[in-house]
């Protein structure tokens, strides 16, 4: 009997496919998310849009909050640790969370190194905006990826950019000859073996979700259309006018992302989505996607 094998860790993410993982800030919100059909919840003290507004240092959630959320739902509970913060991640593991997000939404604890995720029994998800970042995170032990997008903006453009870029780079790698692969590994800054695997299979070896800017059912469906395995929704649900309706509608649009009549139907009577931010109005220092490369 073996725990924490890569099959067990990656398999956990496989079970989330086609699903929606929702940010929640309280036990009560976690129950709403579960009732709406979320496949997991991410327990945190502030959703990304509030982190932007509050400024200061954003850290791991209070263990009490994480435990309260774990107590009230039967679906998996995830929590965020700061990039490079080994101890926050170990604390979350000791609490028994099911997945850790080593997340650029929080203020990085280390500007060079990520956590060595192979030292954990529980799996990690990490953000990536290109194939180089994606394969570096996998090499460090990530069992699941997500686009970085631009969290807390309610603007899907960055998640689209990252999903298209990664999938385009995978197609390119598939078509390289072996001698070109050696150089591509150098250019991307990734291990050759992982790149060879992409070349041979034409896909990432782990699940890749969309995240960072999903605000409407159509946004979620668009990301599925572009090849995402599932969707994270951060601020999009509990910063909307009617969280329960938005949560249910985003779940349905993710499952039936090619059924446009259905998406039209679930998009009616939702009220206002979260207010969005134009990416070009963000200062460079406020771009979360540029953290942890």
């Amino acid at each position: 009997m073996e725990t924490g094998t890569s099959r067990v860790k990656r398999g956990m993410a496989e079970m989330q496919k086609g699903g929606v993982i929702m940010d929640v800030m309280s036990a009560e919100q976690a129950k709403i998310a579960e009732a709406a059909g979320a496949t997991a919840v991410m327990a945190l003290e502030r959703v990304p849009s509030d982190i932007r507004a509050a400024g200061g240092v954003a850290r791991m959630a209070n263990p009490e909050l994480v435990e309260q959320v774990m107590k009230v739902v039967s679906i998996p509970v995830m929590a965020k640790a700061r990039i490079g913060h080994y101890v926050e991640a170990k604390v979350l593991e000791s609490l028994g969370v099911d997945y850790i997000d080593e997340s650029e939404v929080l203020t990085p604890a280390d500007e060079v190194f990520h956590i060595d995720k192979t030292l954990f029994t529980i799996p990690f998800v990490c953000g990536a905006k290109d194939l180089g970042e994606a394969l570096r995170r996998i090499q460090e032990g990530a069992s699941m990826l997500r686009t970085k997008g631009e969290p807390g903006t309610g603007n899907i453009v960055e998640a689209v950019r990252h999903m298209r870029l990664i999938n385009g780079q995978i197609r390119k790698v598939q078509n390289l000859s072996k001698d070109e692969l050696y150089n591509e590994a150098k250019v991307l800054g990734v291990p050759y073996d992982l790149l060879l695997n992409i070349h041979e299979t034409g896909r990432l070896p782990v699940v890749n979700f969309a995240a960072g800017g999903v605000a409407t059912p159509s946004d979620a469906a668009l990301m599925m259309h572009l090849g995402a395995d599932g969707v994270f929704v951060g601020s999009g649900i509990f910063k909307s006018d009617s969280p329960e309706k938005f949560a249910r509608a985003i779940v349905e649009a993710t499952t039936h992302y090619e059924d446009y009549e259905l998406i039209a139907r679930v998009s009616k009577d939702l009220g206002e989505p979260m207010k969005g931010i134009d990416i070009s109005k963000l200062h460079a220092a406020d771009r979360m996607q540029d953290r942890g490369l």
Binding site: T3, E93, D98
Partner: peptide, 14 residues
């Protein structure tokens, strides 16, 4: 019984 072995850290292969 759901989640009968515990949480993800108790997941295993055999």
């Amino acid at each position: 019984a759901r989640n009968a072995f515990g949480r993800q850290r108790e997941s295993f292969e055999t």
